[in-house]
Amino acid sequence: MRRLRERAIETVLFLAAASSVLVTIGIVGILVVESIPFFEHVTFKEFLTDTQWTPLFENAHYGILPLLSGTLLSTVIALSVAIPLGTVAAAFLSEYVRPSWREFLKPMLELLAAVPTVVYGYFALLFVTPLLQKIIPSLSGFNVLSAGIVIGVMIVPYVSSLSEDAMRSVPNHLREASFAVGASRMQTAFRVVIPAAFSGITSAYVLGISRALGETMVVAIAAGMQPNLTINPTEPAATITAFIVQVSLGDLPHGSIGYQSIYVAGLSLLVLTLCFNIVGLWLRKKFQEKE
């Protein structure tokens, strides 16, 4: 009797754990299934090469490129803020700051990740953009630049926390060996600790990239929701995520081409995220072999 109960409980707990796999299967499955009808209307070639994305207009075009350029542009801006800031902050926290201060500073930094993204959108639209307009007068009221910068600050804790964990788990005898041959703290950080923690730092970057690619509200609020094939960050543009929000805000009949188009957009986003994750995995593998 008791053994039966134990078995039953174990099965229930296993099902709970397995449900997390079902979530992934559900997401991928639904995105694929709902996207398939889209490609009955639109050829794959048109999807990848057309330079306009206007699925809800009379004269509809279905080229993903403008959304892709918007997504990549905002991600690149965000990363050029988050990676230097996050890495330097992580090295500083791990190698320079005494533990009692670190215990205080790290949670403070992590609060940045706790702020709701819609609040960051407010900040980008009504604080950062007016500020930047004083420096760049031609800056449009909606622009990718301020959205990208704000996303960058938002993902600093994702980059710095994981990087710092990785750096701190580097064994101390490596540092001591480096100090013993006369290296300064900075040389130790750059030539010993960071290379040794490379694998963990790469994971941190990949998580940061995933967050930046999938960030929605900041770009939907501050970047203007206009699909625009451009690499000029001072202009408005739409990301894949912003397009999904824009369409979802309207009335969307199930099965219409608009409905299918948000699934295609979502699937593209997922594939894009997956690509960066694979690159990260490959980088980690490659580096680990060298050790």
């Binding site: 754990a17 397995a18 997390s20 796999v21 979530v23 992934t24 559900g26 997401i27 639904i30 995105l31 299934v33 709902e34 990949v206 998580l207 995933s210 967050r211 690619l213 999938g214 960030e215 929605t216 995520t241 999904i244 929000v245 979802s248 199930h254 948000i262 699934y263 979502g266 986003l269 997922l270 995220t273 994750n277």
Partner: peptide, 30 residues
């Protein structure tokens, strides 16, 4: 199986939150 579950949980952190919404629209709503 347990390795698959663990790998999956790590990867779920990187899945954009909006795709959860798309999944829910297709699955729960319709």
């Amino acid at each position: 199986i347990s390795q698959l579950i663990e790998l999956n949980i790590i990867n779920l952190a990187g899945i954009p939150s909006i795709t959860y919404g798309l999944m829910a629209l297709g699955l729960f709503v319709y």
